[in-house]
C-alpha cells in the first residue's frame, strides 16, 4: 500500500519521517557492522534488494480485476531479519518512487514505516513464534507473510486516518470512525491479496527447499533437522 506523493498533509509526513529516522539509523548501523564482519555479505544483500524490487513489481494474478502487487518484504524479513529489511525496503521504495512512481518522496517516511518496518517486523515475529511452536514450516511462512501484509495495510489505514480524521479535527472518535472507513475500503483488495501473497511465499519456499535447501540452512533461516523432515529423510 503505497501512499502517494503529496497525500499526507504537513504535520504528518514530518512526523512519520521522525518516527522512521531512528529505526533506519539503527538498521544502517547494523548493516555497517555486518559488512565489516563479513565483506561478502554486501553483494548478497544487493542481489536480495534487487530480488525484492523485482518481486514487488510483478503483478499477482488478480481477483477483483484491479492490478495488485505483492510487497515482497515478508520474504526478505524471514531471510534477513527486520533491521536489514528496513534498509533494503528504503532503497527499494526510493527506486519504486523514481522508476515506477509508486509512492513518493515526502511520503517516504510513512511508506517505509508501514512497508519496511511494521510489515517485516510482524512477519519476522510470526515466523519466529511459529517455528518455536514447531508448526509446519510452510504454514508458518504462509501465516507470516499474510499477517505481515495485513499489518502493512492496517498501518497505512491508520496513517491515513490520523491525517484525515472524520469531522476534521483529530479526536479519538473521529480517528476511529475514519480508520474504520479506510480499513473497510482497502480490505476489499487487501484481504484476498494478503492470502495470495502468503500462498505464493509458501510455494516459493517450498521450491527453494526442494532445489537448494542449503542456502536457507546457511542463512540460518531454518535448521537442518527441519529440512530433513520436510524432505522426508529420516535422521
Amino acid at each position: 500500500m503505497h501512499i502517494m506523493e503529496g497525500f499526507l498533509p504537513t504535520p504528518w509526513w514530518q512526523i512519520w519521517f521522525a518516527v522512521y529516522i531512528p529505526v533506519i539509523l539503527y538498521g544502517i548501523h547494523k548493516l555497517n557492522r555486518l559488512v565489516k564482519e563479513k565483506r561478502e555479505i554486501l553483494p548478497l544483500l544487493a542481489v536480495a534488494g534487487a530480488f525484492v524490487f523485482v518481486l514487488s513489481s510483478l503483478k499477482l494474478p488478480s481477483v477483483t480485476g484491479s492490478s495488485s502487487h505483492p510487497t515482497g518484504t515478508g520474504v526478505a524479513a524471514i531471510i534477513f531479519g527486520p533491521a536489514i529489511s528496513a534498509v533494503l525496503g528504503t532503497i527499494v521504495l526510493l527506486y519504486q518512487a523514481l522508476f515506477l512512481a509508486h509512492g513518493g518522496i515526502t511520503t517516504m517516511g510513512a511508506n517505509v514505516f508501514s512497508m519496511g518496518i511494521v510489515g517485516p517486523l510482524v512477519a519476522y515475529l510470526v515466523y519466529k513464534a511459529g517455528m518455536k511452536a514447531k508448526l509446519n514450516f510452510y504454514a508458518v511462512i504462509f501465516l507470516a507473510s499474510a499477517l505481515g501484509n495485513w499489518a502493512t495495510y492496517v498501518t497505512t489505514s491508520m496513517q491515513l486516518a490520523l491525517a484525515f480524521p472524520a469531522g476534521g479535527v483529530l479526536t479519538f472518535g473521529g480517528f476511529l470512525s475514519s480508520f474504520g472507513k479506510f480499513a473497510a475500503v482497502f480490505a476489499i483488495t487487501q484481504l484476498p491479496l494478503a492470502i495470495m501473497e502468503g500462498a505464493v511465499s509458501a510455494l516459493l519456499f517450498k521450491y527453494v527447499v526442494n532445489v537448494k535447501s542449503e542456502i536457507l540452512v546457511e542463512m540460518k533461516v531454518i535448521e537442518d533437522s527441519v529440512v530433513r523432515k520436510l524432505k522426508g529423510i529420516s535422521t
Partner: peptide
C-alpha cells in the same frame, strides 16, 4: 497462476543467490 508465481519467485531467488556469489568473486 499461483503455482507459477511461486515457481518464478523461487527460481529468481536461487538465481539471485548464485549471481551474488559470482559477483563477490568477480569483484574480489
Amino acid at each position: 497462476s499461483i503455482h507459477s508465481m511461486g515457481m518464478l519467485g523461487s527460481t529468481l531467488f536461487i538465481r539471485t543467490w548464485e549471481q551474488g556469489d559470482k559477483l563477490f568473486l568477480a569483484m574480489n
